[in-house]
Design a protein around this nucleic acid. Structure first.
Length: 426
RNA sequence: GUGGCCGUAGCUCAGCUUGGUUAGAGCGCCUGGCUGUGGCCCAGGAGGUCGGGGGUUCAAGUCCCCUCGGUCACCCCA
């Protein structure tokens, strides 16, 4: 049997209302903060990600869905949202819009890594970016959006972790210091970290190998190496979070997987996901990204939030997405007995829908009993019954499926009757 | 990319250890009891290449190998 590709899943009708409700809430929050939606393509030129994420990043090294199109171009299914958004900003001259520009997206991302619960080869992210502002207030504004959203959903066991990864001016000195620190321990590091020592010593900091972790604990801290500008920026970000009373912890060990990050780096973790896929959100500032795409210097900051993971965390904390239930449901089922009645029912069904009610009718010709059972199973609030008897008197039976009360209603009044009845006590 | 566990109807699972008649159950689905009225009950029915391929054997859902998929722990990430 044909199956969906590995690590890629269907979202079925039973779950869709939950997704719709969550997405609606995200759009509502984005609008509240003045963010406008941008829809960028799922594929970009491979270079867009190669140049921004960094050649040594895991994404570029082993996780990209890359293919050659018929014209010989190398294209890649986007592994993350930011690079494409910045590309679009540059391509469409958004630098001439009032700055900063605030953008958000809800879109699928693709990463070719090994699937696990909460980690999929195709997953959805809610993300937002502020482009054109280097101010610490921009960092805190864009990051407070998902944090407030998470609070609104009622999640309690989440932690905001904050760090600064410096910038191209001060980071090289720190990387050197790290290299110098780790070199004597070289033989005690794990295989991966020995490699990291060469290509990207920052990564050793987040290694979970106990041996490496222990050595890393004594490593110099980035905060000791930040230059005045970066330090001032970081201090102000922390001050502003404090002003908003957003609880956070400083974590000198988060460095983020993508090379384009500068200064602010943030992650949000849940304590409820068994240590596995507990990271729900990642983000930070990326002041050099636009230049890497051959654009001018456009500072930016943003985040990406994994929707599947958020859903998982909600579940783990026993929470529901507000209003998710109401996105589903059926008002009316129209049952017909006999061919003449079926035609009249078909017309009636159309009128009911035109009036704005959610209705389905019988499309085969089963017995009334089977049709009533359908109405019940589909969760219809009312059943309308049309047969020879009703037709003769130009009437229809309207049955309230909750109470079992049935009324005889003139045919031309059925739609009105249903409309008022379904708004009362729905 | 590395290692462990798992894979039998739409769903949840039994059967596998000690190979041997037509592979079962509950729920769901369809039909009937009730010739035009849902929920409860009763009866019947449909639905399975036992994830796929190869091997061992007189005989494989059951044993072995490979492969695909899921899951967990890593790597890393949302």
């Amino acid at each position: 049997m044909m199956k969906a590709p590995r690590g890629i899943h269907d979202i079925l009708p039973d779950d869709a209302p939950k997704w719709q409700a969550l997405e609606a809430l995200m759009r509502e929050f984005a609008a509240r903060y003045g963010y406008r939606e941008i829809r960028t393509p799922v594929v970009e030129h491979t270079e867009v990600f190669q140049r921004t994420s960094g050649e040594t990043s895991d994404i570029v090294e082993k996780e990209m869905y890359t293919f050659t199109d018929r014209g010989g171009r190398s294209l890649t299914l986007r592994p993350e949202g930011t690079a494409g958004v910045v590309r679009a900003y540059l391509e469409h001259g958004m630098g001439s819009l009032p700055q900063p520009v605030r953008l958000y997206y809800i879109a699928p991302m693709f990463r070719y890594d090994r699937p696990q619960k909460g980690r999929y080869r195709m997953h959805y992210q809610f993300g937002a970016e502020v482009l054109g502002s280097a101010a610490p207030a921009a960092d805190v504004e864009v990051l407070s959006l998902p944090i407030r959203l998470i609070q609104t959903l009622g999640l309690t066991e989440v932690q905001v972790r904050l760090n600064s990864v410096g910038d191209p001016v001060c980071r090289p000195a720190y990387v050197e210091a790290l290299r110098k620190y780790f070199l004597p321990y070289r033989d005690q590091l794990c295989e991966d970290c020995r490699r990291r020592l060469e290509v990207n010593p920052l990564r050793i900091l987040e290694c979970k190998e106990p041996g490496c972790h222990k050595i890393a604990a004594g490593a110099p801290r980035i905060t000791e190496y930040l230059d005045d500008a970066c330090r001032a920026h970081f201090d102000e970000v922390k001050r502003l979070f404090g002003l908003l009373r957003v609880p956070y912890v400083e974590d000198p060990f988060i460095v983020r997987g993508l090379d384009y990050y500068t200064r602010t780096a943030v992650e949000v973790h849940s304590g409820r996901l068994g240590g596995a896929q507990h990271q729900v959100l990642g983000g930070g500032r990326y002041d050099g990204l636009a230049e890497q795409l051959d654009g001018p210097h456009i500072p930016g900051v943003g985040f990406g939030l994994g929707i599947e993971r958020l859903l998982l965390v909600l579940d783990a904390e026993g929470l529901q997405v507000p209003a998710a239930a109401r996105a589903d449901g059926l008002d009316v089922f129209v049952a017909a007995v006999g061919e003449r009645a079926a035609h009249e029912a078909f017309r009636l069904l159309d009128r009911i829908r035109t009036a704005g009610l959610r209705a389905v009718g019988e499309t085969t010709d089963r017995g009334l009993r089977a049709q009533m059972k359908q109405a019940d199973r589909l969760g219809a609030r009312f059943a309308v019954i049309l047969g020879e008897q009703e037709l003769a008197g130009q009437r229809a039976g309207v049955r309230d499926m909750r109470t079992g009360m049935q009324q005889d209603v003139p045919l031309e009044q059925v739609v009105n009757h249903l409309a008022t009845a379904s708004t009362n006590g729905a």
